[in-house]
Design a protein around this nucleic acid. Structure first.
Lengths: 225, 225
DNA sequence: GTCTATATCCCGATAGAC
DNA sequence: GTCTATCGGGATATAGAC
């Protein structure tokens, strides 16, 4: 058996790296960058702590690799929704529902982003790769908004980044703030019996906004002080 | 001068404690519980590290005291809005706008909450005081929703906690995720030129939802696949 | 490429005088 | 109530053999 065929070996570098990344994602999501422990990551990995430094350099480099992998995952998923074949309203609804489901199923990603905001995004800022990966969602939304304006279904002239902000806000909040809400108001926002209600609220709020007319004081302000 | 009048002394306990709390709020908001340094807090205080342990017991107790002070601040503000004198729609708008302004002006509070969610709210959960303090916002919203349903201006039968969730989501997101958004999309969500746009979007989205009719497929689904 | 053992630093908490 | 000096635990990172 020639040594030039490493793929038959039990532990090839790529598998080891992916194993480390998967475990590190959970640890960083669970405790944040400052709270995460390299020892804890190594312990749950098939390999050793030395290998983490060997492959990734250090704790912060590993953390950045985790962020890059996580962002790529959601952006790839969004790009495969086939929104171009749908009407603008249906495309928007499909994007909102996909985001809603993805966020609910991937709390680790939400927690990573929350942690990186605590860090004032100083690690994301160092990565041009992350910026490139994330352009796709804005490109997608720009096209949906353009088509909706063109066929008249969207009445609002909105910046696509602001639309992304509103979708993200409503989908992320119930995951990101699940614990404080649960502790303060005794209501688990991820309780399965609430999913349909929350998804419908999210869709109707955003689509309702996009498809309705706006104005200076559009809503029942007559007679107010 | 009798010693029973301590208010004339330069350093009375209450002032010292408030000084510590103010500095600790900034430190915990800036770095989270795990990332915050007791030494850093002590350095920027008028007093010493020893006094932090003397008054508060330890790092985690100080952190909890900071959380209690911060939550009390926003809940007191909300309670003084005089919403009972306004129509349901105007009351809702006033509450949304107040929340929007408060969150924008108090990023430290938003960051504290985000950090506590990283901690899975395990500190908030230990405090019955925090739960009591936070009931007021739900009481307030319950009353607004009840009146709006009664006079017919609100068409949706919404759980007040869910309404609070939606208001919080839209107002908090642009502050909580300011840094990752800025780094990824090159748009500072707190840029002063965006404030009016975002506030109007937030109000119209929520009030528009509450005052419009809902249904299974209420929005332009005719002809869709 | 992989392991164990360890160097080095940093931080929370405390001792003990005044 | 306030200060300075320091202890002790634990974390990141590395050394060095195989």
């Amino acid at each position: 058996m020639p040594t030039s065929e490493p793929k038959s070996r039990k532990n090839d570098p790529e598998t080891t790296k992916q194993d480390i990344l998967a475990v590190a994602t959970e640890e960083f999501a669970a405790y944040g960058l400052a709270g995460a422990r390299v020892d804890a990551i190594a312990e749950r990995t098939k390999t050793s702590k030395r290998m983490i430094y060997y492959y990734f350099g250090g704790k912060e480099d590993l953390y950045l690799a985790v962020l890059e992998r996580s962002y790529r995952s959601i952006r790839v998923l969004e790009s495969n929704l086939g929104l171009g074949k749908l009407s603008p309203v249906d495309a928007l609804r499909r994007l909102i529902e996909s985001t809603f489901e993805y966020d609910e199923k991937n709390p680790d990603f939400i927690r990573l982003v929350a942690g990186e905001n605590i860090n004032r995004a100083e690690h994301i800022r160092r990565s041009t790769l992350l910026r490139d990966v994330n352009t796709s969602i804005i490109t997608t939304l720009t096209e949906v908004v353009r088509r909706g304006r063109e066929d008249g279904s969207f009445k609002r002239d909105i910046d696509p980044i602001d639309l992304h902000m509103m979708i993200s806000a409503l989908c992320i909040f119930r995951v990101a703030n699940r614990y404080t809400f649960g502790a303060l108001f005794r209501r688990d926002m991820l309780d399965p019996t609430l999913t349909d209600t929350h998804r419908a609220m999210t869709c109707e709020m955003i689509i309702g906004y996009m498809t309705s007319e706006g104005g200076d004081a559009p809503l029942c302000l007559t007679g107010a002080a």
